[in-house]
């Protein structure tokens, strides 16, 4: 049902924010450098989709984020399930996993630039290195969180090997794996844009950095807004996938488990 009052209040807040922005920009207290006029930003936003450069930047950012996420998932999920299923391996790797999950991977960038140059490959490796850990950690967690009753059931009914892995262990860990993937999706976009901002690897982040150097603050804000929509879209897309994959899970069914 469409909620009229809610919609009106949202429009009012939006208008208020715009007016504040307009006033702040006109007063010049924050400097045009930081805060361009809203109209300049919107006209840039409308122009952008007609520029080939914009689409290529968007494509390059998405490509590194998506590819990096996929590689991280292909490595992280099986590795995490194996580590989580073997208490000895889990204990031996616990410190390392803890160490790397809290490691600010972006600090590795200067080293990787030395090794691979400021290239798409370097960006991709950065994304994989950052996106791997949430997926790995959650997969380990999921593999370790098996209901004792389910464990007893598989033992009692002699379910083991491949059937146990694909029919029991994997779906059981899936809610956790999805959480890891969601965190990593956000991280992979963050890292792609971060690397582009800091090195001269093409993408949305690079456009922001270049526009900033040119003093084109409307362009900077326009690209920041684009990156926001990118993040929002990925988030929504991911939520839809999650609802589909975990249709059986209490959190999706809207129950309190």
């Amino acid at each position: 049902m469409f909620d009229n009052r809610k919609f009106i209040s949202q429009v009012l807040v939006g208008a208020g924010l715009l007016a504040l922005w307009q006033l702040a920009a006109m007063s010049g207290t924050m400097g045009r450098d930081l805060l361009p006029l809203p109209l300049d930003v919107f006209s840039r936003l409308i122009e952008l989709p007609f520029e080939a450069r914009f689409w290529s930047a968007l494509q390059l950012t998405l490509a590194s984020a998506f590819l990096g996420l996929c590689i991280a998932a292909v490595i992280g999920i099986p590795l995490g399930l194996i580590i989580g299923a073997n208490p000895r391996v889990y204990r031996a790797t616990r410190f390392l996993v803890d160490l790397f999950r809290s490691w600010p991977i972006i600090a590795l960038m200067p080293v990787l630039v030395l090794l691979f140059g400021a290239s798409f490959k370097m960006k991709l490796i950065m994304v994989v290195l950052a996106a791997l850990w949430p997926i790995l950690v959650q997969s380990i967690y999921g593999a370790r969180r098996v209901e004792p009753t389910i464990e007893d059931m598989t033992l009692s009914y002699g379910i083991g090997g491949r059937v146990k892995f694909f029919e029991v262990a994997l779906p059981n860990a899936l809610p956790f794996i999805m959480t890891g993937l969601r965190i990593s999706t956000a991280l992979s976009v963050l890292l792609s844009i971060g690397v582009e901002v800091l090195s001269s690897v093409p993408g949305i982040g690079y456009e922001i950095a270049i526009a900033r150097i040119d003093g084109a603050s409307a362009e900077v804000i326009a690209y920041v807004i684009v990156s926001g929509f990118l993040g929002l879209t990925l988030n929504q897309a991911f939520a839809a996938i999650e609802r589909y994959v975990l249709a059986w899970h209490p959190s999706v069914r809207g129950e309190t488990a």
């Binding site: 930081l34 844009i193 922001i208 920041v224 807004i225």
Partner: peptide
Amino acid sequence: QFIRSVPQVALVPLIIGAL
């Protein structure tokens, strides 16, 4: 929802560049 979806590092050039 929108503003929290902005990758936080995208704002770094703006803030540091200006200030």
